[in-house]
């Protein structure tokens, strides 16, 4: 099949970019979306042009490196699918395809389709440490956890930090990402002593990174390649509320001891 691509080209973070039209002839339906771009890039390199820069690593939908907007939907809009797992059989001959990077102040475009997502790393880092016993391997089942809780923690931990939630959100909010990270640990017995402060720190860091606010629209949930539900946002909201209520100034001299 032959496609027409409209791709966002941007030299670097400081230079304004624009959409550029490319022809993608002889695209095989067996290709993944990234393989299609690889072929287009081969053509650009042969012509002496700069290839289209995009992030990718595992190409099996688990690393969270790839991701951009395809026709106005993060990762192209197929359920639980990253761009690398999106196959060209979903497109038809003659289709026009718009390809744009995630857009958010917190995600500056570095080049073409590559954005800097280190704001996500700073949100995770702001959560601080998790108290876990180290040393010899713990006994199996020594730390009891309800099946329900371990399932919920695992569902939230499926987040690969691709940034599609921010990209899909009309407010460029990182509530689904931060909610997933907070909710993931909140359901586990490890790190319970830090739970409240963690939710305060991570929400405040999310705000400091200039992500927008959540308006409970649900676009994030719909485009999340890991199908993380907005229930994790409610979980974050609840933890933040409780932690804010109980937050108190540090005392000079501790009473105990």
């Amino acid at each position: 099949m032959n496609l027409t691509l409209h791709v966002w080209r941007q030299k670097d973070v400081a230079t304004p970019g624009q959409m550029v039209r490319y022809d993608a002839p002889n695209v095989s339906e067996h290709m993944s979306f990234l393989e299609m771009l690889d072929v287009v890039n081969e053509g650009l390199i042969l012509k002496g042009d700069e290839p289209i820069a995009f992030e990718h690593d595992c190409r099996e939908g688990i690393c969270g490196s790839c991701g951009f907007m395809i026709n106005g939907i993060a990762h192209g809009g197929f359920k639980n699918t990253t761009v690398c797992q999106l196959h060209m059989r979903h497109f038809e001959d003659g289709d026009e395809v718009f390809i744009e990077p995630w857009r958010a102040t917190a995600f500056p475009v570095m080049k073409d389709l590559i954005v800097d997502r280190s704001a996500f790393d700073r949100i995770i880092a702001s959560g601080g440490y998790v108290s876990v016993s180290t040393g010899s391997a713990p006994d199996g089942n020594a730390l009891p956890i309800r099946k329900q809780d371990s399932d919920l923690a695992m569902d939230a931990a499926a987040c690969i930090g691709c940034g599609a939630c921010v990209a899909s959100c009309p407010n460029a909010a990182a509530a689904l990402f931060t909610g997933a990270k907070i909710s993931h640990l909140a359901h586990l017995p490890q790190g319970q002593p830090e739970r409240k402060e963690r939710s305060l720190r991570m929400v405040r860091q999310m705000n400091a990174e200039l992500f927008g606010n959540c308006t409970n629209i649900g676009e994030c949930e719909a485009t999340c390649p890991k199908g993380i539900p907005i229930e994790v946002i409610a979980s974050m909201n609840g933890d933040f509320l409780a932690a804010s209520w109980q937050e108190r100034p540090p005392v000079e001299i501790a009473g105990a001891g």
């Binding site: 939907i73 809009g77 958010a104 899909s168 009309p170 927008g212 649900g218 719909a222 485009t223």
Partner: peptide, 14 residues
């Protein structure tokens, strides 16, 4: 949070 709008943006389930 998003000064530069998308050239193309489609709402899905909202």
């Amino acid at each position: 949070a998003r000064p530069q709008p998308y050239v193309k943006k489609v709402a899905t389930t909202s």
